[in-house]
Nucleic acid binder design. Structure first.
Lengths: 196, 196
DNA sequence: CGGAAGTTTCAGAAACGATTGAAACTCGCC
DNA sequence: GGCGAGTTTCAATCGTTTCTGAAACTTCCG
């Protein structure tokens, strides 16, 4: 019977997505909650999630809050129902833009700031000579800083409001660099806002 | 005295880099070992690393092996010395290409494979009708698969031998999307191969 | 072949992050 | 204000991952 088959596929997706999450420094549960919301497509409440994922209320609540902070899940209210429901961003590209934006903000930007500080710590004191060692050290830091600057640039043009840029670039680069199509997946879908 | 200042800056870099590593799912020590090799620029042996990082021999050995597997550190032999020395890839872009290549291979490719399987599990049985729910489920999986296909494409063109492509693109996109230069860092350096 | 120098492995210990569950809190309503 | 439905917080616990240290192994040399 089809409902069972669907549920199994969903569970499998949840497991896979959760595993991926933990490989990328995201708590497994948080990724699982997101997976569940994404794959079911419909708004779920805390109790739905607790039951389906067999996790505690506290954990479900924390994970939901985190997902809201990341901007890839939103609150939904139903008239005549006091409970809050949650629904995942349905547009995959919007979702990854949000993730990139957040990780840059939380991890890469502070890292850059720290690297600057370290660089300053051994910076040239106006015109004073420095040892070859210090020079090489500074050059290595500068190389890294330049790389992160480039990364920041790429990320901005992906993330920004008009940020369809990289999406287009990805398509082009995708065809240059890789296989020209997923066999059997058929046409591009434009209706990414299906559940909006 | 300059040597102390340098050592402090190095230590700080090691700490920062290690912290970043753990945020991205890499063991802290492994990132620290890499940081140390990168920032000192010279080949170090296991004992050097043990002492400087205050870690056990076993841990140092494991971390070194992992870094070799990732292809961002290489063995160096010194004539008349039986010990093995290790040296980090000095070209930042080459380093990140290696990282992207490995993470795609280890994490994204298997993920894609699993998503395909899940998709097959609920695929259209030749011409048979399916419920709206199943259709929507399949569409969501397809969206994800298409995204990862695009990602694969971008990554390939970044990683491939002629993979300077994205590096150039990054530069262009960087200027479109972000601030046009790091104040005080001066000219682009072309001598990324400093340590051969 | 025996031994010294160096490297790798691995079982157990320690450290760390995730998870629970119950108490505290908030909010809307009577 | 007091109640009930729902949500959040947090100290304690649990589970995983990482790290250690000692033993096993490998390699080179006389």
């Amino acid at each position: 019977m089809a409902a069972v088959q669907l549920k199994e596929a969903q569970d499998r997706f949840v497991a896979v997505w959760g595993q991926m999450g933990s490989a990328w420094g995201i708590s497994r549960t948080m990724a699982e909650v997101h997976a569940l919301l994404y794959i079911t497509g419909e708004p779920l409440c805390t109790d739905d999630i607790m039951e389906r994922l067999q996790i505690s209320r506290g954990n479900a609540s924390m994970s939901m809050r985190a997902l809201l902070d990341w901007g890839i899940v939103e609150r939904v209210h139903r008239r005549g129902d006091r409970k809050e429901y949650f629904k995942a961003e349905a547009d995959v590209w919007a979702m990854f833009r949000a993730i990139v934006r957040e990780r840059m903000k939380r991890e890469v930007d502070p890292l850059r700031a720290q690297l600057y500080e370290i660089r300053d710590q051994t910076g040239e004191r106006a015109g004073r000579e420095q040892s070859a060692d210090l020079g090489a050290h500074n050059k290595r830091l500068d190389d890294l800083l330049r790389f992160f600057q480039a990364l920041e640039g790429v990320s901005n043009s992906f993330v920004s409001p008009a940020g369809r840029g990289l999406q287009a670039a990805a398509k082009i680069l995708g065809y240059i660099g890789g296989a020209p199509g997923i066999g059997g997946l058929g046409k591009e879908s434009d209706d990414t806002k299906e559940a909006g």
